[in-house]
Each structure stands twice: as structure tokens, then as C-alpha cells.
Amino acid sequence: MAEPFRVHRGRAVVLPVNHVDTDQIIPSREMKRVSREGLGEGLFAGWRYREASGREPVPEFPLNRPEAEGATILVSGENFGCGSSREHAVWALAQYGFRVIIAESFGAIFRGNCIRNGILPLSLPGKDCTQWRNGVEISVDLEAQKLILHDQTVRQYDFDIDPYAKKLLLEGLEPIAMTLSQSESIEEFIERDKKMRPWLYSAA
């Protein structure tokens, strides 16, 4: 399971667009093996490299700019991570080195995938975060639910996060183990359900 997430300070890369879909985050052609590994290089491949099959960088793409070097925080617009459910998008972001994604809002499946992989999906609706400077330093305190933008003028924001996601991230918990510790409740459900819907358990 992922490292616990408590505080993080890092440089941010700003992608000032809405509806960044998971096909853009990791193009399908970059998912080459039945594996979670080796995806960092394919991150944003369609935007980051000149050609679909090549690795020559597009210099003006925010991630390739010198001020974003070593970025660990990604900032984008509305509905970030929409589209395909591929968890490879989150694995690619993590392998590249991202720990926090800040966006107006997120695709629901993508958000769930983030918290299971130790990435904090942080929504700041209505804060115009796509206007932030590429390469800006940001610090995030998950426990306190506070974000600080270390720009010419320092700004502080509060953010919301649901208690389950917070707990999972803060403690670096393993969701399967957590649920398996509740096996008794699950077994009770199934026993009762088997009486009500025997056909489901014996179908074909």
C-alpha cells in the first residue's frame, strides 16, 4: 500500500485546461503490458512528445518547461481524469512523481483511483487554480485540510475531503485488508441474501 500522506511541499505544474481525460494522461498505446509498472514515461505522451511513437519533447508543454522540473503537484481545471476508468492514469502520475492533483473537480473513478494509490485529489472549486503560475511552490497539510500557495503573495486555502479518503491517505491503509477485517458482516449479508435470492448463487 501507499506511503501515508500527511504534509507535502513541492513544485506545481499547471495544465490550464478542462476535461483532461485519462486517455490523455496515459494513452492506451502506452499501456504495453499486463502490469502496473513502466508507465511514467508514457504520462501525457500525446502532449509531451512531438510524435506518437517518439520521445522528443514538445518544449512548450508545461510539464517540459524548466520551471516545472521535479514537479510533484499537478494543477488543472474542471472534470480532471474524466473518461476511461484505467487506473494506469494514476499509476503513471505516481511513477512520474506526483503526490497531489489539484483541480476544480474530478472524474469520480479517477478520484477513487487516486486515494487508493496514495495520491491526494484535492478539489478547489471556483478558485481559478488554472491561473496559478507554472512552477509555483505549494504546500499541503492533509490533517489540517490547508493548502498554501507560496507565490509573490502567499495565499492560503482550506479544502474539503471526505473522511474515508482522508483516513485512507493519512494512514496509508490497505482497503482490502480493512474490508476483510469486516468479513463477519459480509458473511451475514450473504447468508441472509442466499435465502432471499438463492438463484443468484446457483445461476448457470
Binding site: 499501456m31 499486463v34 502496473r36 487506473e87 471526505d162 474515508y164 479518503a165 482522508k166 483516513k167 459480509i186
Partner: peptide, 26 residues
Amino acid sequence: VEGAAIGGHDLIAIDRLLLHERTGGV
């Protein structure tokens, strides 16, 4: 599933699960 919620997240029993070779294999 009764009594299994954590942090406002329910535990929902899944009747049938589907996988495909692109994301299910992993």
C-alpha cells in the same frame, strides 16, 4: 452491508463482477 460503513463510505455487496482483458487482467 450493515454496520460496515467507514468514514461515510458504505460497503455495497456486489452481485456480479465483470472483467475484461485490458484492465481486468492486471
